[in-house]
C-alpha cells in the first residue's frame, strides 16, 4: 500500500443559514492513496460539493482539515484540478475553448508546448475542430467536455470531479468514463469523483465512499475488487459488479435491497 496522498480528517461544515446555522457535514473522514480512484456517493444535498470545495482549498472546513501529502490545504494546491458540477459557469465565456484551456497554463513553466498540450486535451475529449469555438456555441455536454479537457491539460496529480458526466447522453457518458480511466492511467493521476450514479461509482473506482443524509457522515467504505482493466460491457457483467452495486445501493438507502415482489408492488402502486 502506498502512502496516503489525500487525507480528509474529521471535516465538518456548518453554514450560516438565513435563520439558523445549517449543518451540512457532520463529520467526514477518509483517505485516498496515491494513484487511487475513489468515488464519493450520497443523496442530493448531503454536502458532496461542499466537501470537494474543502479538499480543493476553496473553502475552509468549520472544523477538521484536509491534508495533501501531509500538508494542510489552505488554498488551491498547484497539483490539483477541479471539474465543477456547474461546468457552464466554470468556463469563461469570453475565451474560446482553446483560450479556456490555455489560461490556467499561462504560469506553468513545467508544461512545455502549451499549445500542443491544449490541442491534445481537446482531441482527447473528442472536440477536435471546436478549439476556436466559444463555450456558448457548444451544447451542454460539449461544454462539460471542455471543462474536463481543461483539467486534463493542467496535468494535475490529483483530479477532483463533481458529477462531471451528469449532463451528457448515455453513450458519451460511457466514452467519457473510459476516457478518464485512460488518461488517469496514462498520467498517473489520483482521482476523487463525486457522482450520483451507483454504476458509475462502482465501474470507475478502486473504492467507494458512501455518505449519509445531511448532516453527513461516512456511512460506508467499499473496496472495489474488480480487475484493474475495466470494460463497459464485460466488467458490468461480473457477479462482483452486481454485488457491489447492490451493496452501495443498500448503503445509500440505509435498508435492504427490495425483493422482486416489493419492487413489483411499488411499481404497480
Amino acid at each position: 500500500m502506498s502512502a496516503q496522498l489525500l487525507e480528509v480528517v474529521d471535516v465538518a461544515k456548518t453554514f450560516d443559514g438565513a435563520h439558523r446555522p445549517v449543518k451540512a457535514i457532520e463529520r467526514v473522514g477518509f483517505t485516498v492513496a496515491e494513484d487511487e480512484f475513489v468515488s464519493v456517493v450520497g443523496p442530493s444535498g448531503c454536502g458532496k460539493t461542499t466537501l470537494l470545495r474543502c479538499i480543493a482549498g476553496l473553502a475552509p472546513p468549520t472544523t477538521g482539515c484536509t491534508l495533501l501529502r501531509g500538508v494542510p490545504v489552505t488554498e488551491p494546491p498547484p497539483e490539483l484540478a477541479v471539474v465543477f458540477q456547474d461546468y457552464a459557469r466554470s468556463l469563461f465565456p469570453w475565451l474560446t475553448v482553446r483560450g479556456n484551456i490555455l489560461l490556467p497554463l499561462r504560469r506553468r513553466r513545467d508544461i512545455p508546448g502549451k499549445e500542443r498540450t491544449a490541442a491534445e486535451a481537446i482531441e482527447a475529449v473528442g472536440l477536435a475542430g471546436f478549439a476556436d469555438h466559444y463555450p456558448w456555441q457548444l451544447s451542454g455536454g460539449m461544454q462539460q467536455r471542455v471543462a474536463i479537457a481543461r483539467a486534463l491539460a493542467y496535468r494535475p496529480r490529483v483530479l477532483l470531479m463533481d458529477e462531471p458526466f451528469a449532463s451528457v447522453d448515455a453513450q458519451t457518458r460511457a466514452d467519457l468514463e473510459d476516457l478518464v480511466l485512460e488518461v488517469r492511467r496514462r498520467f498517473r493521476m489520483t482521482v476523487l469523483l463525486v457522482t450520483h450514479d451507483i454504476d458509475e461509482a462502482v465501474y470507475m473506482s478502486d473504492r467507494v465512499v458512501v455518505l449519509s443524509r445531511p448532516p453527513s457522515v461516512v456511512k460506508e467504505e467499499l473496496t472495489v475488487g474488480l480487475p484493474a482493466d475495466r470494460h463497459q460491457i464485460t466488467t458490468k457483467e461480473l457477479r462482483e459488479f452486481a454485488r457491489l452495486r447492490t451493496a452501495v445501493y443498500v448503503a445509500i438507502k440505509g435498508q435492504e435491497a427490495p425483493s422482486p415482489q416489493a419492487t413489483a408492488a411499488t411499481a404497480g402502486g
Binding site: R53, A56, G57, L58, E75, P76, P78, L80, A81, V82, F84, D86, R89, S90, L91, F92, L95, L103, P104, R106, R107, R150, Y154
Partner: peptide
C-alpha cells in the same frame, strides 16, 4: 463558480484582472 474556477486553477494577480 467562475471565481472559484479561476482560483482553483491559480489564475491570480494581473492575469486574473486581465483575463
Amino acid at each position: 463558480t467562475m471565481l472559484a474556477s479561476a482560483r482553483s486553477y491559480r489564475v491570480r494577480g494581473l492575469d486574473r484582472l486581465r483575463w
